[in-house]
C-alpha cells in the first residue's frame, strides 16, 4: 500500500502537482511518472504544492533534479511551495534552494511564472554546513 499520492490541477497555464504523504525510494516512481507526464505533454510550468508532504528522502529529491532542466528547456520551471519545516530541512541540507525556487505559498509560486525571480543561476555556492 502506497502512503503517497500526487494529483494534478491547473491554474492558467501552470500545472500544480499536489503531493500528499511520504516520498521515499518506494514512492518516488509515482512522482517521477507525474512529472514525466507534465513534461511529455509540454506542460513545463510546474508548481509542486508540498503542504501535505510529510516526508522526503534523497530518492524524492533526485526526481526533482531529474526533471528541472527539462522543464526549463521547455520554457518553464519546477517551483516548490508550502513545504513543512522538516521537509524543507532535507532540501536545505543538500543545497537544493540554490537550484530551485522554493517559496512559502502556492500563490507566490504561480505569480513567479509571470516574469520574475527565476532561480536558474549556476550552482557555484559552497555546500551548506
Amino acid at each position: 500500500m502506497s502512503n503517497f499520492s500526487v494529483s494534478f490541477r491547473h491554474r492558467g497555464d501552470v500545472c500544480v502537482l499536489d503531493l500528499t504523504g511520504e516520498l521515499d525510494a518506494h514512492t518516488a516512481a509515482e512522482f517521477e511518472a507525474a512529472l514525466q507526464k507534465c513534461v511529455t505533454e509540454g506542460e513545463c510550468k510546474i508548481v509542486v504544492q508540498g503542504k501535505d508532504l510529510q516526508y522526503i528522502s534523497s530518492a524524492g529529491l533526485g526526481v526533482f533534479m531529474a526533471f528541472v532542466e527539462m522543464a526549463r528547456e521547455g520554457g518553464g520551471d519546477i517551483k516548490i511551495a508550502g513545504l513543512q519545516p522538516r521537509v524543507f530541512t532535507v532540501f536545505d541540507l543538500l543545497g537544493f534552494p540554490l537550484l530551485f525556487d522554493i517559496v512559502e505559498t502556492e500563490d507566490e509560486a504561480v505569480a513567479r511564472f509571470n516574469g520574475t525571480s527565476e532561480n536558474t543561476s549556476a550552482d557555484t555556492s559552497e555546500d551548506p554546513a
Partner: peptide
C-alpha cells in the same frame, strides 16, 4: 562532491551526503 552532483543535475548520489549531514 555534492556541488558536482548538483551541477550535473544527477538523479542519484545524494543519500550518503544526507546521512552524513
Amino acid at each position: 562532491a555534492l556541488t558536482d552532483i548538483r551541477s550535473q543535475r544527477r538523479k542519484h548520489g545524494y543519500g550518503l551526503h544526507l546521512i552524513h549531514k
